[in-house]
Amino acid sequence: MRDLRRGYGAAPWHLLLLLGCFAVAGWIALRLAGEASAPRMLLWFLGAVVAHDLVLFPLYAVADRGLRAVTADRVLVNHLRVPALGAGLLFLVYLPGVLGLGDGTYVAATGLTPRVLVGRWLAVSAGLFAVSAAGYALRRRRR
C-alpha cells in the first residue's frame, strides 16, 4: 500500500476517484462517438479551454501590463481597470446581442429580427467609465 502511495503520488482513493471520473467521461465519449457532430463538440470543448487560457487570459493580462506601464498611479489604474473589465464582461456574455448575431432561429423563435446592440453596449460601457471617472475625480478632490 505504501509503495502504491509513493509510486502513484497520492492516496489510493485519489486514484479510484479519478478513474471513476474518467470512466464516466469515457462512457460519454463512446456514446457520442457515433454522432456526426461529435468532432465539433470535441473541438468546442477543447477550443473553449484554448480560447480562455491561451487567448483571453494573455489578452487581458497584456492589456493590464500595458495600462500599468502608462501610469504608476494605482488609484487611476483601478478606476480604468474596473469599467474596462465591466465592459469586457458584458461584451463576452452578451456577444450575440451586441454583434447582432443570431440566425433564422432568432426570428423564428421571437418574431423579431436580431438587432445590432453595439450602441447599447457602448452606452452601458460609457456609463461605467463615467461613473468610475466621477469617483476618481471625487477622490482626487478629497485628497
Binding site: 476517484l17 479519478l18 471513476g20 471520473c21 464516466v24 467521461a25 460519454i28 456514446r31 457520442l32 454522432e35 457532430s37 465539433r40 463538440m41 468546442w44 470543448f45 452578451y94 456577444l95 450575440p96 446581442g97 448575431l101 443570431g102 440566425d103 432561429t105 432568432y106 423563435a109 421571437t110 436580431p114
Partner: peptide, 27 residues
C-alpha cells in the same frame, strides 16, 4: 441568444457536457 454558431444539437451537447463537468467537479 439564438446564435447557434456551434452547429451541433444543443440538448445533447449541454446534457453530456453537464455530466462531464459534474463528475470533474465532484473529483
Amino acid at each position: 441568444q439564438y446564435a447557434y454558431l456551434f452547429g451541433f444539437d444543443f440538448y445533447t451537447a449541454h446534457w453530456y457536457g453537464g455530466w462531464i463537468f459534474t463528475v470533474a467537479l465532484v473529483s
